[in-house]
Design a protein around this nucleic acid. Structure first.
Length: 466
DNA sequence: TGAAATGTTGGGGCG
DNA sequence: ACGCCCCAACATTTC
């Protein structure tokens, strides 16, 4: 490392485990210097550590990235964990790094950690170059006409999607000079994480950039046909399943927008699909402007809300033993696959908050730990939305009837039968609401709460803080 | 991106 | 033939 002319530039990977449309990587390539590629698990103050399912995903995604860097460029990715600035300083000898290239992060504490890195590097005259990729918009730039941030989705999306077209994605670098080094690859074992509960995940998911672009292509070339209405039906395989790939930065919303413009899917389906990306942007917009979104009620009137603290309720919910087949199917899908259908998420979230009267943070924490796509903005923002404590939130009186949702969106019971296997012999007339006298013989629990009673007490509680 | 309660309408059974 | 009632179907209001 002693000869400065051969000194490397450093590319840091964090939530951007990809080579395509990776502006930091491209800029590092353009610098002409040899590249040292490092993934850092940032333990800086205030950054939320990944949940277990997301760690499972990351281990595989990192392996895939490592292989791609090695195959394409002969670059050996190394992995480190620790507070960002410390990890980076510990890695490099002073004055031997020309520059650092990173993609901007929007989790407020992570953004701060990047600022700190920049300050630390400044002391050593090492410039830190930041690039965009995680989002379509810059939450600090997009403002309402009165200069504030957006609090309602529709005007937000109108403003965002009516602006000039989004930037085109960048190709992966044609060539990169590898920096030769003797650094240890993965001292903390980030690439190895194989918990027993994740055994089934491999059948469903292909973490990594290649898996991401495959999903996108499949979706835009046919799977997404009928998305605008079909997305509500939980047994239909019409959704893109891109969320974990997006969460880990294996694909960018820029790439998705650009690809969707070339798709032959019906315009209505594409519009609905893009709008979902819009919700993702909106959630990040909210988090940037409300750094404590994951821990505090956006609507502070709820600080005095009389939540239940019944641990037995919470356990039934987590295990998928509430006695409501749709809720249980969804919770088991989450456990078995690390993912849950969007409508099912709304149903189980509404059930936790309104039927069981538990604090949304309980559900948010479980999702955070069990979802492969857990995202620091989307998870809390959507939980607050369902709970009615959030921005542009669902009105307090919107209480899903799990049995009705089941009849409407899983009419033939395929979704339920897939995950609540003990009920698979029931015909669809009984499946949505198994008769009390049958439950014992099917080893299926009685409902933990009575729907209309639970509904009434939720309404009473929510009215109390209006 | 809801569900339940309440109101309205119209067809058909029936005295 | 007619009015009355019932109730399903649909619309509107309310939470």
């Amino acid at each position: 490392m002693s000869e400065t002319s051969n000194a490397p530039v450093l590319v840091l990977f964090r939530h951007d485990l990809r080579l395509d449309d990776n502006l930091a990587l491209s800029a590092a390539a353009d610098s002409g210097h040899p590249v040292l590629a490092v993934y850092v698990e940032d333990l800086s103050e205030g950054i939320r550590p990944l949940g277990a399912a997301a760690r499972w995903w990351r281990a595989r995604s990192l392996r895939s990235l490592k292989k791609a860097l090695s195959d394409s460029f002969g670059i050996r990715l190394i992995c480190r964990r620790g507070p960002l600035a410390e990890a980076v300083m510990g890695l490099i000898g002073q004055g031997q790094i020309k520059a650092i290239y990173i993609n901007r992060r929007f989790e407020p504490a992570a953004d701060k950690a990047d600022d700190l890195l920049e300050v630390e590097c400044g002391h050593h005259a090492i410039p830190v170059h930041r690039f965009e990729g995680q989002l379509l918009h810059d939450p600090n730039r997009l403002k309402t006409s009165t200069g504030g941030f957006y609090k309602v989705f529709t005007p937000f999306w109108r403003a965002l999607s009516s602006t000039d077209s989004f930037a085109d994605p960048a190709d992966r670098p044609e060539s990169l000079r590898a920096y030769k080094h003797e650094l240890e690859d993965d001292p903390d074992g980030l690439l190895e994480y194989d918990p027993p509960w994740a055994k089934g995940f491999d059948k469903i998911w292909q973490p990594g950039e290649a898996g991401a672009s495959e999903r996108l292509e499949q979706f835009l070339e046919g799977r997404g046909e009928g998305y605008s209405t079909g997305r509500d039906f939980m047994a239909m395989e019409v959704t893109s399943r891109l969320s974990p790939h997006l969460a880990h930065g294996e694909i960018t919303p820029r790439q998705i927008m650009a690809a969707s413009a070339r798709s032959k899917l019906p315009p209505a389906d594409l519009e609905t699909f893009r709008k979902e990306l819009g919700w993702r942007e909106f959630c990040w917009h909210l988090l940037v402007h409300n750094p404590h979104l994951a821990t505090e009620n956006y609507d502070t009137r709820f600080n005095h809300f009389p939540w239940n603290t019944d641990n037995a309720f919470l356990t039934h919910w987590k295990r998928g033993r509430t006695g409501y087949p749709l809720v249980d199917a969804a919770m088991r899908q989450l456990w078995e696959t690390g993912w849950m259908h969007n409508r099912a998420r709304m149903v189980v979230a509404s059930f936790l908050v309104k039927h069981l009267g538990l604090h949304w943070k309980e559900g948010e924490a479980w999702f955070w730990d069990t979802l492969v796509d857990a995202d620091a903005a989307n998870n809390p923002a959507n939980w607050q939305w369902v709970a009615g404590t959030g921005a542009d939130a669902a009105p307090f009186f919107r209480i899903f009837n799990p049995t009705l949702q089941s009849r409407k969106f899983d009419t033939r019971g395929e979704y339920i039968r897939t995950y609540v296997r003990e009920l698979s012999a029931l015909d669809s007339r009984q499946l949505h609401e198994p008769p009390a006298e049958l439950r014992e013989s099917y080893a299926y629990p009685a409902p933990v709460v009575d729907h209309s009673q639970a509904r009434e007490s939720a309404l009473t509680a929510y009215r109390s803080i209006r």
